[in-house]
Design a protein around this nucleic acid. Structure first.
Lengths: 165, 165
DNA sequence: GGCAAGTTGAAAATGACTTTCATTTTCAAA
DNA sequence: TTTGAAAATGAAAGTCATTTTCAACTTGCC
């Protein structure tokens, strides 16, 4: 019997999908914006992924469902999702903005391979505590922080130590 | 008698300047590049600051010493300085790359005000330890990390709580 | 000095967003 | 339903911080 990979978590449940749509719809109503099929398609496509997507990557996925949806709409919808807390931007320091699910998501950080760009998430409550502590010390009202570690993943390290033989 | 501000550290000493120049010159020789007056001027100008400079800001300062030095040369020299460990890039997440001294500098991080852009440096050995620890755990060969805290500084917080009266 | 290799800087190119605008949709009131 | 004001869409144009190109200089080893 095949063993499931340890991170082989189920895709988002129908219930969570519905809940996220509600959050978006409420946000739209609150700020006087309108409900459109494009926005729903984009939200659904976004929620079905578990990666850190760039706008371009999300646009590519969205086009599979509806080829007429343009990049601009994906761009604007992603901003909307960030506004209502469903998405958040992560900067991997390669000049491309990436977005990940934020709703119902445990606080986490990323370690990024500078060779192949792959990343692993890790959890470190200490970092959250540090934000509070240092903010207090310097009289800042902190709102967020970024913490990323860069290096070579195991795979790329092996490749590097074995040059073009 | 005037009291010195607590962070009123002396400008870089002549000796450190010389040492930094040596590092650059050795690096140039090592990779087969040439020694030019422009590169020296840019290094000196950079070392005389204590701020986090964008390329544009450094170019402005450099032009005061030699108006004929172009932006492109500043850009390329900053990359060189980063290569040999004299400078390092800090990303404050506002779309502009900034550089700061790296040589002989204690490991530190930044807390940035999202309103006025000012920043304070803080020291947190715990973060350096975390880099090691998490890298080991996931079999990464870590090279560096970024840790920034964002929020409102005391000044901007006061302004914010007192709207256009 | 002579010249191969490297440097310079003005200008053009790049590329990831952002904005514009003419056209199409949405939705609440009639 | 119909209507029309407000909003959304998406193709194309604009921004802006880099990054590259290239023809005219410098450097530094002989």
């Amino acid at each position: 019997m095949l063993q499931k990979r340890i991170d082989d978590q189920p895709l988002i449940s129908r219930e969570m999908m519905r809940e996220a749509e509600l959050i978006l719809h409420n946000h739209l109503k609150r700020v006087g914006l309108k409900h459109t099929a494009q926005r729903d398609t984009i939200l659904r496509t976004f929620l079905e992924t578990r990666e850190h997507l760039s706008m371009d990557e999300l646009h590519r996925l969205v086009k599979r469902k509806d080829p007429r949806i343009g990049f601009t709409t994906v761009y604007r919808t992603l901003k909307l999702l960030a506004e209502c807390g469903l998405a958040s931007e992560v900067a991997f320091h390669d000049g491309i903005a990436r977005f990940e699910h934020q709703y119902n998501r445990r606080s986490h950080h990323h370690m990024v391979c500078t060779e192949c760009g792959s990343s692993v998430e890790f959890f470190s409550p200490e970092v959250d505590r540090l934000e509070q502590e240092i903010g207090r010390k310097h009289h800042y009202l902190t709102t967020r922080h970024t913490f990323q570690i860069y290096g070579l993943c195991e795979n790329c390290r092996k490749k590097a130590s074995r040059p073009t033989a």
